[in-house]
Amino acid sequence: MRQRSSHLPKTFLGCLPLYIGVDISLGVTIFNKCSGAYGILALFTGHPLEFMQWVMYLWSIATLCVYAQGLFQKHRPKLLTFSQIFVTFSIDTILTCLFTLWFTHSWYSLEGSSKENSSTGTSDGIQEANQGASQAVEYGATLFITLVSLISKLYFNFLLASYVQELLLHPKYMVDQDDVEQDLKHQRPWKRWWIKSQKICYKFSKNLLA
């Protein structure tokens, strides 16, 4: 039996079973991925999307479909499905970091060009102006929320990796390649393509984790 990597978390938050962590990770990520649908909905208000926004929103919708499978299989997981979720999640983590950098640049270049940072100017003046956060606090809080979001995503990624590793080493979830091949012949083209992608992800996960 091959040794399992000791770097991956074996429990969720140190006390709960892994599958609970995976359940929560997928749920939280799905809420975030809904942004894709609302981003594209913005087109109906007459707002054109930039290329990077198109890429991000379409990717979000695609990943939402992949992750949703996991919630339906939480008590009876299939290795092929979770391999696909793990690989998609890993790519998503990298892309999220890149998107974050890109849109951080967009926001601050836009904010830098606007000059709206003065006080609302009230009769009570100085005391009320002190109730608003300083620039440093605004930057700090923005950075904090962004970093918490990215670090959580990274942790969820490790949880999924650990879960898929456990599934790979568990005989109950072993994938019968012949069954998969046989099954493919009776499926519609899009389903065949979907299962093929799962197989590719399975092979990748096996090489990486098992």
């Binding site: 975030n32 942004s35 981003g39 913005a42 990077m52 926004q53 991000m56 929103y57 998107f99 974050t100 849109f103 951080t104 967009s106 926001w107 904010e111 002190n130 109730q131 608003g132 956060a133 300083s134 606090v137 605004e138 809080a141 923005t142 929320i145 962004t146 979001s149």
Partner: peptide
Amino acid sequence: KITVKVLPAVETVLYGD
């Protein structure tokens, strides 16, 4: 202190706009 920029900034940074 009340923040006014954090949420629109985070919305753009994490969700693109």
